[in-house]
Amino acid sequence: MRTRALSPLSIAVHLSVLVLVVLWTVPTAGLLISSLRDKEQISASGWWTALTSASRKDIFRAPGPEAQKQEGAEWVISGNIFNGGSGHVSAFGTSSLKPEEFTPGATAELKDGQKLTVSETGDFRLTSPQSFEGSRGQRIFYTALTPPRFSFDNYRTVLTAEGIGQSFLNSLTVAVPSTIIPILVAAFAAYALAWMKFPGRSLLIAAIVGLLVVPLQMSLIPLLKMYNGVGAFFGVPSKTYLGIWLAHMGFGLPLAIYLLRNYIAGLPKEIMESARVDGATDFEIFVKIVLPLSYPALASFAIFQFLWTWNDLLVAMVFLGTGNEELVLTGRLVNLLGSRGANWEILTASAFITIIVPLLVFFTLQRYLVRGLLAGSVKGG
């Protein structure tokens, strides 16, 4: 049996898909691995070295004279340079010019007969024939190998932060209706523009295509002023979920109608005509025939709309506010990072928490994504 050789175009397509998968997967894997490491490990080495011991150079200052104890004729200050942590000392020194002068277990001769010994486990022993004097302890420069370790401490810090649970629910309250409402409205509009003949249909289609290029930032302030004016007239508060649902619906409808209209227009005409012959109304055709057949297009748009609304911060701050009870998850994590600017481990854990829900949505509906987008892009009527 002869096997069919792949064409150059098929090979190029497969390679392109492979490259895109790698470009998408590698940063995500790196983010996950970094979120399971502590601050010292992230600072010392990249996530790709997470399974190997990391070498780091550091400085430790021994306790002062208040920690000394007399043992026979000697005064002793002892402890561990890792302060309860773990690691293996590969070299140490007493000067910044020679931070790796001694090997673990060796004895360094200091001034006034003082001696310093550092073991491989980090235990140090500083001895002197006379009582230690001075206000500051001895500096110990060391190079250590830190074994790989993973924990969920970063996630505990983020998830136990004040208000994080409420913000998570706020994001769900914003994202779910902001995804479902535009799909419902766009599906009705797409069917009407595809299969119902009425005056001005072509102008409406052209206007929808034109709205695709209108940037959100340019229309956000006029939309907010209009919404506040209407709300003041009817006595509706300005900072409500209704406002952000309407805003996301307005920003998402042009793309939704465009994709769904092209997809629905490409459905077999014979099915519609047979249904009309059997006495079905437009509403019955839409509900019983068009919607089930349009599931790939609906799912593909749902993915994009949910990702946009879940990760949105600008529209949420404008239409919902920044109070503790209204703040969405992205805003809460920004505030958390603002008070912990140097804690990169918190940044990685926070970023991964924000993408968990979108990842679940994407992997649930991804089989419909390409089929729905391609059909909605090339079919027209």
Results as ranks from 00 to 15, higher is better:
R4L: 14
L6E: 07
L6S: 06
P8V: 02
A12V: 09
A12M: 13
V13G: 02
L15H: 01
V19G: 09
V22H: 02
D38Y: 00
E40I: 06
A54V: 07
A67H: 12
Q68N: 10
K69C: 10
W75K: 06
W75C: 08
N80V: 07
N80T: 13
G84S: 10
G85Q: 15
G85I: 09
A91T: 05
P99H: 10
L110I: 13
Q114N: 07
K115Y: 01
S119P: 00
G122N: 04
G122S: 00
R125I: 13
S128H: 10
P129K: 15
F132D: 12
S135F: 10
Y142G: 10
L145T: 08
F152K: 01
R156G: 15
T157K: 11
A161M: 05
I164T: 13
I164H: 02
I164R: 03
G165Y: 05
F168Q: 04
N170Q: 14
S171E: 06
T173M: 13
V174D: 02
I180M: 06
I180R: 09
L184Q: 05
V185A: 05
A190K: 05
A192S: 14
W195L: 11
M196K: 09
K197R: 12
R201T: 06
S202G: 05
A206G: 00
G210R: 07
G210Y: 06
S219Y: 01
I221Q: 04
L224V: 10
N228S: 07
V230H: 05
F234S: 04
L246A: 12
A247I: 03
M249S: 08
G250E: 02
F251I: 04
I257G: 11
L259C: 04
L260P: 02
I264D: 06
A265I: 07
A265D: 00
S274V: 02
T281D: 03
F286E: 12
V290W: 05
L291R: 08
P292G: 03
L293A: 08
A297L: 00
D312I: 08
L314D: 02
N324T: 11
A342K: 14
A342Q: 14
N343C: 12
W344Q: 14
S350H: 07
F352A: 07
L359V: 15
F363T: 15
T364K: 10
Y368C: 06
L369R: 03
G372C: 02
L373F: 10
A375Q: 00
G380F: 01
